[in-house]
Amino acid sequence: MTNISAPAPVLTTTVAGSGPAIVLAHGASGGIAANFGSLIPVLAPQHTVIGSDYPADDTPLELDSLADALVAEAAAAGSEEFTIIGYSLGTAVAVRAAVRHPERVRGLVLTAGFVRADNRARANVELWQRLLAAGDRESFARVALLAGFSADFVNAIPSDQLPGMLEQMAAGVPGGTAAQAALVAAVDITADLPRVAVPTLVIGLSGDLLVDPAGAREQAAAIPGAEYLELPGGHVVMIEQPDRWHAAILEFLAQYPAAAAA
């Protein structure tokens, strides 16, 4: 039976494509466009892709109600069953949704995820909160660059392009980032993972400086029957390794078509 927590946060949802349903769960300081903008056109020709942005203010978030809200948005879009693709914080949202709504969730793809925030991740998101509270978006962008991308990627950026990239990152910090950062620090899905009973692909990133790939490996080890794949590069896989990330997701969906059956 579906469990419902209240009050549910208000999400902003977009739908693309048609076919078996895919629900997207984005990460902290991201959004559907930022995290999945390159993936949606890949999925939409054969799937209904449902993406819900978390609240754009700093109302406190709670994992149960956020997972419930994500499922409710999918149901409101007409999809009774679906696979969830979660990224970073979104992996915890996806796992909690699968445990709380087993009659709806038919598969999981979890990228750059964690079981609970380790010391480095907690220090990062606490620094995010302090910088945002001080209104220092320029420093936030620098922290996000250094933690979000691999060392090789950052060092390969032409020096004359780096200021513009930092300026763009500072201008693009979405509302609600501080609340999402607080949720990262609070998450613990240890007890959820053994209860996941659907086909699951876990993707870790070997050069991830924000979320240690050990967290993704721990997810995979604890979810019964989960597959694990580790890609090179840093946390922001959709920029560093988009083609390999897309290919892994498509291969999983082809291998387990029932996971995406509406």
Rank of each mutant, 00 (worst) to 15 (best):
M238C: 09
H235D: 02
V236S: 08
Q161T: 11
E218Y: 14
L166H: 00
A197Y: 14
P242C: 04
A186K: 03
L162W: 00
I239W: 00
D243S: 15
G234T: 03
W245M: 08
A178R: 12
P232D: 14
P199S: 10
I239M: 07
W245P: 02
A214R: 06
M238E: 09
V202S: 03
P199K: 15
Y228D: 06
E227S: 12
E167R: 13
Y228W: 12
Q161A: 14
D208K: 00
Q241E: 06
Q180V: 08
A197E: 13
Q219H: 10
Q219Y: 08
A156L: 06
G176Y: 05
A156I: 02
G164L: 12
A186N: 06
W245T: 07
V236W: 00
I239T: 08
G172H: 08
P242Q: 01
L183P: 04
S206K: 10
A222M: 13
E240V: 07
E230Q: 11
T190G: 08
Q241W: 00
A191D: 14
H235C: 03
Q219M: 15
T177D: 13
L205K: 01
V211N: 05
P163H: 13
L183T: 02
L162E: 02
A222S: 15
S159V: 15
P199C: 14
D212L: 10
I223R: 04
A156W: 00
A221E: 15
D212Q: 05
A197V: 15
Q219F: 07
R195L: 13
T177K: 04
A179L: 09
Y228E: 10
Q241N: 05
A156Q: 06
A181L: 10
D160N: 11
L166K: 04
P213N: 09
W245K: 06
A182E: 11
L162Y: 00
E240D: 07
A185E: 09
S159W: 11
V211H: 05
